[in-house]
């Protein structure tokens, strides 16, 4: 599975939103209506799933699915 699809699947499971309605452009706050606690929990799940550590100050720049995919790709290089 592509990294993008994995991220979408994880977000879909965490938010109980249909994966078909989530794309690279989907915004966590504007489209998924997530608050700061939701975001902390989501980032914990990302860390577990992708085996990376995402420092708190860096999560502030991750505003969309696309941001996360780009970030994770950069981390894996």
């Amino acid at each position: 599975m592509e990294l993008q699809d994995k991220v979408i699947k994880l977000v879909s499971e965490a938010t109980k939103m249909d994966a078909a309605n989530i794309s690279l452009n989907t915004s966590f706050v504007d489209d998924l209506n997530l608050d700061s606690l939701d975001m902390v929990e989501l980032m914990m799940k990302m860390e577990d799933e992708f085996g990376v550590e995402i420092p708190e100050d860096e999560t502030e720049n991750l505003k969309s699915i696309g941001d996360v995919v780009t970030y994770l790709k950069a981390k894996s290089h």
Binding site: L37, V40, E41, M44, E47, D48
Partner: peptide, 10 residues
Amino acid sequence: PRRVSPFFIP
């Protein structure tokens, strides 16, 4: 400690 849920207290 980083795996304690932000929803734990609420």
